[in-house]
Computed example of a mutant assay.
Amino acid sequence: MAKVTLGGNPVHTSGTLPETGSKTPDFKLTATDLSSKSLSDYTGHNLVLNIFPSVDTGTCAASIREFNKAASTLENTKVLCISKDLPFAMARFCGAEGLDNVESLSDFKDGNFGKTYGLDFTDGAFEALLSRCVVVVNAEGNVIHAEQVSEIADEPNYEAALNALK
């Protein structure tokens, strides 16, 4: 269980992120067109999993914008923005912002992504939402970077995540 803070108050997650060097756990998430997506849909691509509580918060929105900007320069890399928001909310946000270099996915149906990756909040105001994390996966399906952001209101370390792809 990871210990992070929300506004300086301790909160906990259901486990710990996959370790660097480990195989990336499979997932089943819902795309904005309501289709199902799994890890196998991205075989052969590097992945940046930008994981956050809700697109309707300033920090989460900022992370989508920042990774969208970076995604336009990344070769063989898909940036997946993952939350428990409804796919409609993600589509609305990205459409209004003109963000088309990222792919939005939702864990709203069964919540197994959060459980498998150990990042569901188990207490606090954001209980049951996903913790702010970045997981970078190489084309072979191995985790090459994982960051659990220690204060939910803080942005992730974009530079460290993107440098892992070099």
Rank of each mutant, 00 (worst) to 15 (best):
T30K: 08
A91Y: 02
G95P: 00
G111K: 10
T57L: 12
G111E: 14
D85E: 05
K84H: 03
F93S: 02
A139I: 00
T116K: 10
A89E: 13
I82E: 14
S106E: 13
A164P: 08
S35T: 15
L86R: 02
G21E: 15
M1N: 07
P25E: 09
T77C: 07
T20W: 00
Y158D: 11
A62W: 03
D107I: 09
N76C: 04
V55M: 14
F126D: 04
V102N: 04
T77H: 06
P53A: 05
K166P: 01
L162N: 11
K37Y: 13
V134G: 02
N46S: 08
H12K: 08
Y158E: 03
E103A: 06
A91G: 01
A125S: 06
K166C: 05
N142I: 00
S63W: 02
T16Y: 07
A128Q: 07
D120Q: 12
A70N: 05
D107A: 13
I82A: 10
G98N: 12
K84I: 14
L165P: 07
I51K: 07
D154S: 15
D110H: 11
N142Q: 12
G8N: 15
F108I: 14
E75I: 00
L129E: 10
T32K: 01
I82S: 11
L162V: 12
S54K: 12
K84P: 00
L130N: 12
T116L: 06
F67Q: 12
A96T: 10
N68Y: 10
E103Y: 10
A61Y: 01
D110Q: 11
P18W: 05
G124C: 04
T43S: 15
T20P: 02
K109W: 09
V11N: 06
T59M: 10
E151R: 03
K78E: 13
S14T: 15
S106N: 04
K166N: 15
N112T: 10
R132T: 07
A160S: 08
A61R: 03
P87S: 02
N157G: 02
E147M: 01
A139K: 11
E159Q: 14
L49N: 10
E127W: 00
E103G: 03
